[in-house]
Nucleic acid binder design. Structure first.
Lengths: 173, 173
DNA sequence: ACTCATTGTTGTAGTATGCAATACTTTACC
DNA sequence: GGTAAAGTATTGCATACTACAACAATGAGT
């Protein structure tokens, strides 16, 4: 049942939102949020026991930002340097991340994805896009056509840059 | 700039989605997803150091489902009974959850929120709704009006029940 | 009464996380 | 040039989350 009766059709009293609007919208957003979180979780779980969610976030940062030093990586992940350092330890031992002394400063260490790490990121991302595409394809035409505009407006109102321009903070889950 | 040029206007070739559609929609969904995850994280962080995200999920389950035994709680959270047991340990010691022997079966133990636990859930939830409402209020009217229908259709296509009917699995983050 | 499933807990282990302390390197200033 | 300050990574210590396996207590069915 698309176009539920909540707020389509009848012209509203200008810009002010009444309580019903806010509640309905908030419910809708929370519901969609649950679904998206579930999709994210599944796409990582499908990578097997090879990786955890925080580790995947780390790999994504390295892929999107390129080689980084520990301090920057920690900043992007919003964790402390010690946490980042130990996560890198583990990912190095399983061969997904590479540690190299910087050529310009002997105190810096440059982290980069290995071929294997790149492969894992690609697999998980592909699966996620596929799952989302499958859901989108099941939507009624009208709703699907509006999805891009509405979600973009929502993200912009929330100050989130589009998926193509990668944000420093809030790397996706 | 509502109604971007991607797919509005020109009649499409029936139900099949071309690659451009899928990419645009997927990008929009991923972007919105990042924002929602960030909002969730902030609303919990604002609860102070009083609680972690997994602990909050546990409290939410107890609030929405009512008193539960350990096995059911673990099922809802999608963790093992041992994990649930130890999380409950911690929440009992800080006075947010109450353990009571069941009256009907001596091996069952009934878990319930304390007054304090209820308060924490209410605070975090209120903050989250407030943040979302603030974002929604910043959206252009047209997009905002479409949000409910579009997101509802998306959630339905993904098999997620509405926020009011709480799902057994995938309790929100 | 005996067997078996249910239920919760504990032992053990690995990951994630932060704060504080430490060691080393670079930069800035005198 | 030499010393102080800032930057960078790591390690020690503590806590939380998580799972698997083993175990104890209870309840149900025969």
């Amino acid at each position: 049942m698309p176009t539920s009766g909540t707020l389509v059709g009848m012209p509203r009293s200008s810009s002010a939102l009444d309580a019903t609007d806010v509640d309905a919208v908030t419910d809708a957003v929370l519901t969609a949020s649950r679904l998206l979180v579930a999709v994210s979780a599944r796409s990582i779980a499908a990578a097997g026991d090879a990786i955890t969610l925080p580790q995947f976030r780390l790999l994504v940062v390295l892929q999107t930002r390129g080689p980084l030093k520990h301090a920057d990586l920690a900043e992007y992940l919003q964790v402390t340097p010690s946490t980042a350092s130990r996560m890198v330890d583990r990912l190095v031992t399983v061969g997904m991340v590479d540690r190299q002394h910087s050529t310009v400063s002997r105190r810096e260490i440059v982290l980069a994805l290995t071929r294997e790490g790149t492969k894992v990121v690609r697999q998980v991302t592909a699966r996620r896009r596929k799952e989302i595409a499958k859901i989108v394809a099941r939507m009624p035409d009208e709703a699907r056509h509006g999805l891009v505009d509405v979600l973009t407006a929502f993200a912009e109102a929330g100050g989130e840059p589009p998926a193509s321009a990668v944000a420093p903070e809030a790397v996706w889950t």
